[in-house]
Computed example of a mutant assay.
Amino acid sequence: MTSKHNAAAPQGALVLFSGGQDSTTCLAWALERYPRVETIGFDYGQRHAVELTVRPTILEKMRAMNPDWAARLDADHLIDLSLIAAISDTAMTSNVAITMQENGLPNTFVPGRNLLFLTVAATVAYRRGLDVLVGGMCETDFSGYPDCRDDTIKALQVALNLGMATRLRLETPLMWIDKAASWELARTLGGDALIDLIRADTHTCYLGERGTLHDWGYGCGECPACALRANGYQQFAAGNPA
């Protein structure tokens, strides 16, 4: 990360890229729209750290999939945010059963995670001359996390721009669509090749399970992330029979 912020630089995007289904779809979405796209991932002591190991393969295959994407896809940044695990007590950062809490949220909710992710990403974007952040937050088909809601993202966009004197834009292409529509969006963006990549190479399961390849991808099949992904794929497949 060497270049300085330059208001006159061509518009570019920094995609929050975890290695999961949603962020991979968002990456394809950004590659269709922006002349330069960089990616950023976070090692925060997550229980499913396997998602970090699949990221390079996904990036390599997306470059090979489309020459235009290859020309636009630039640097990847992996940031150490292990302090999140140090100050959190959640099922995403500890080996405990996934349950609902008294506040109505699942204990997979990591307080402040997306707020910190976006703040750090905005700092990297500033230095790299990028003026769009792209994230896979969604409040249509999700686990109820308050930091995935549209109001949160809009408020944070205002705060970041006030705090850095920028005109950064936060884009959330999945915000108002469900998982079935996310699968369909991926097919629209990259055809069957992108669907196959998402199935076989991305990782979403909270437990980090990659022992069995289901029709919807790898995972335990029981955690909330797997349930959403599997149900969405079944609806998508029903509308797109072979």
Rank of each mutant, 00 (worst) to 15 (best):
R167G: 15
I98M: 09
D141G: 10
L189E: 09
P111G: 08
A159L: 05
A86N: 12
A86S: 12
R169G: 14
S143I: 10
M175A: 03
A193C: 14
L174R: 05
A121W: 01
Q101I: 00
M164V: 12
L81C: 13
T188D: 14
L160H: 01
R187Q: 11
V120G: 09
L130Q: 07
T90W: 02
T140I: 11
A122V: 10
M92R: 03
L174C: 06
L197G: 11
R113T: 00
A86R: 15
E102A: 09
P111I: 07
M164L: 15
I87Y: 02
R167E: 15
I153F: 04
P173S: 14
W176E: 10
I87H: 03
S82A: 11
E102S: 04
Y126H: 11
G112S: 11
A181C: 13
I177N: 05
D151E: 06
L83E: 06
D178I: 01
S82D: 13
F109D: 00
R113F: 00
D150L: 11
I153K: 00
D201A: 10
N95W: 08
T188N: 12
K154H: 07
H203I: 06
T108I: 00
L83H: 06
T152E: 07
G112M: 10
T140C: 13
A181W: 08
L170F: 15
I177A: 07
M164S: 12
M137R: 04
A200E: 14
D178M: 02
A186R: 15
I87T: 04
N107C: 07
L160K: 02
F109W: 04
T99D: 04
S143K: 04
A85F: 04
G163Y: 13
D150W: 05
T119G: 15
L162S: 02
S82W: 10
S82T: 15
A155H: 11
P111T: 07
D178Y: 01
W176M: 11
Y145M: 08
V110R: 00
L197E: 11
L81Q: 11
T90Q: 03
F142G: 01
L156V: 02
M164D: 11
L170S: 13
P111C: 10
M100G: 00
P173V: 12
W183T: 07
L130V: 09
C138W: 05
D201K: 10
E139A: 09
N114A: 08
S182D: 02
P106Q: 06
G135S: 15
W183S: 07
P146Q: 08
V132E: 04
I98Q: 06
L174E: 05
I195C: 10
E139Q: 13
I87V: 06
A91D: 00
G136H: 06
W176C: 09
E171L: 11
M100A: 00
A186Q: 14
I84D: 06
S143D: 07
I153Q: 01
L162R: 03
D89G: 04
A91F: 00
